[in-house]
Design a protein around this nucleic acid. Sequence first.
DNA 1: TATGAATGAGTTTTCATTCAT
DNA 2: GATGAATGAAAACTCATTCAT
Lengths: 210, 210, 210, 210
Amino acid sequence: MSSPARTTIRAAARARIVAAALRTLEESGYAGATARAIAATGGFNQALIYYHFESIEELLLAALKEFSERRLARYRKALEGVTELTPLVRMMTRLYEEDAKSGELAAAQEVVTGSVISPELRQRVMTLMDPWFAFAEEVVRRLLVGTVFEELVPARELAYAFVALYFGVETLARFDNDRARANALFESGARLAPLADLVLHSDLELVDNP
Amino acid sequence: MSSPARTTIRAAARARIVAAALRTLEESGYAGATARAIAATGGFNQALIYYHFESIEELLLAALKEFSERRLARYRKALEGVTELTPLVRMMTRLYEEDAKSGELAAAQEVVTGSVISPELRQRVMTLMDPWFAFAEEVVRRLLVGTVFEELVPARELAYAFVALYFGVETLARFDNDRARANALFESGARLAPLADLVLHSDLELVDNP
Amino acid sequence: MSSPARTTIRAAARARIVAAALRTLEESGYAGATARAIAATGGFNQALIYYHFESIEELLLAALKEFSERRLARYRKALEGVTELTPLVRMMTRLYEEDAKSGELAAAQEVVTGSVISPELRQRVMTLMDPWFAFAEEVVRRLLVGTVFEELVPARELAYAFVALYFGVETLARFDNDRARANALFESGARLAPLADLVLHSDLELVDNP
Amino acid sequence: MSSPARTTIRAAARARIVAAALRTLEESGYAGATARAIAATGGFNQALIYYHFESIEELLLAALKEFSERRLARYRKALEGVTELTPLVRMMTRLYEEDAKSGELAAAQEVVTGSVISPELRQRVMTLMDPWFAFAEEVVRRLLVGTVFEELVPARELAYAFVALYFGVETLARFDNDRARANALFESGARLAPLADLVLHSDLELVDNP
DNA sequence: TATGAATGAGTTTTCATTCAT
DNA sequence: GATGAATGAAAACTCATTCAT
């Protein structure tokens, strides 16, 4: 019944709606992402949403999933083989800039924060975030392996802290229209990273400070 | 005309509504904090809200303000005189537990994240957050003063990072019902703090790790 | 029980509320003459209205009655002894200017047109207008008495037409902010009145116009 | 995209809502013409109004416009070629009866008088009334042309007076349920019209009445 | 696939009115 | 006499969703 062509057309239509949903979330937030608004953004009829998705909630989740998976692939590729803080900070700065510029991260965050209402929704959003925690842990382990900190620092908690920091920075940044503070933070990170790398790959000796 | 008794009665009525708003935000999120829901939570008539506040938005802002000022005072007192990481982490853990238990922090966050929609609202929320950035910077400076890091680490950016981290942790924690990950993070912090304090108050010597 | 002083105070309070109602009607129309708005205009509490009047409707009727009786007395006095069109138009122009300037006529009209909703209200408003029809008829009779038109023209219908004209002119005039058209009409009336007076007090002979 | 059939369906739906609005205005007045009431009158859902019109105000204006244009066309046709008062009064009596019977004139008047509140609305209503002033002036000119009154009587002001009279009569008539007074006025007009026509088309000679 | 029309339940807000003081 | 607080009902309008085509 459903030929590959059919599937492709259907997928294209869904993608169009998802894109409109992300744009609307970005511009108007979770509360403003109504069926009418999304349809207006995408230039199609409200009812079309219900032809392709069960409900608005389902559409927003699909949009979050699509964005999350696409970005995770990008992040994986960009951080492939990175084992030191200096290049990590450099790459993360670039990735954050991409995210901030496109506005899709803001859209995704809207879905995440907006989903607190229903426990069921919350559960499903969490499932979408899990790969990010795993990925962050993976990167942290790569940084720590072979250093004196490997035993000392719990990679899992550090990864969690990094994701939370990234999340918090983006949330707060959306209030500063110029993202000045977020950028300053990244710059400070870049300045301190070489020093931190030195510390990471050295033997530490602590001398009492009288 | 308006005796002190009058003022008190009025303030009490306002406080009652603000409390209902916070409870509703906590239980149902920003989108669920409707006039009807708040009135139901507080056991009063919807119209009473409009007798004491100009609009729902105004009420939510008042609630955020009330919470923010009350908690900031509490944080200031709790961290008074703290100059080392170890007691800082201990106090912060306790404060976070208070916040998490009462649910008001979650309520406040709902207002913050929910306010992204309107630029004007965003502006007003930012004004309420500013004292927190200032307070965080003050605490960070107290930790760094007199150490080798004083010149090295930009206190302002570090303070911003801490607020963002705290904010991000709380946001993510609201998805884990048991707050397991957040607690694990605090525990790791407690474990590492004494070591970090040692580093902070020592002269560092880096020996290359062959 | 109720001394004359009491009565006077009470009457003064009522008058204050009635004045506020008229001002509010004038500025905001029938729909805008809410309890809150009237109280704000008069600088007293909403509840005070209900202490002195049964309901808003009752207050508006009282206001209409007060205005109607006061103005009718003024009109009676001004048109006393007038038996010709020329002075009649001159006096009416002056009276209309008074009414237009004070804005109370507009207020009264709001009550009249606004009262169409309820048959009972309509009935009561009509009762207040009846003296005006009678007065207009009286004036018309004074103009016609002793002329050839006395038998020809039905005074009652003419009086009705004049009241309706006056009413219509005022209604339409409230759309022209400058009342230009209404004033032009009065001026034309003044110009034609002497001619009409000539006709009124002459024997007419009609000569066919070939 | 939008076939003629589509357009027709949409127009029919709008017409249905406009008709319901007029009926509701007629029965319940401006203040009673609420979304709920109009929907109940028309037997459709409240929300449908907002699907076809931007707001209640917009709907009422559309209703006024529709009525005004339809009736103006009817009046134009009926008074086509009329140059004497006698047939004019006869036709106007018939037209007024049509208007009074259908109740739509009352509805239209509700919008007009109700629109005093907002200056913007007032402006838009005025625009709809302008063609009526022009039409009335046109008719008046037709009556006066070639008579001795042509130079004497200002057609524009007379036209304004006629519209105001018509307007006032209708407003007052809505208080008399039987419209007795309005009808009496029309009857008197019919009785006097032939005489007035004689006067209009004669040379006047005034003889002093001793 | 896609659309315009339609709906029931919900939103914020305002109203007239009452109550306790 | 007068007031601030409080309320139930209703206003305009919007939402997610469905239906017929």
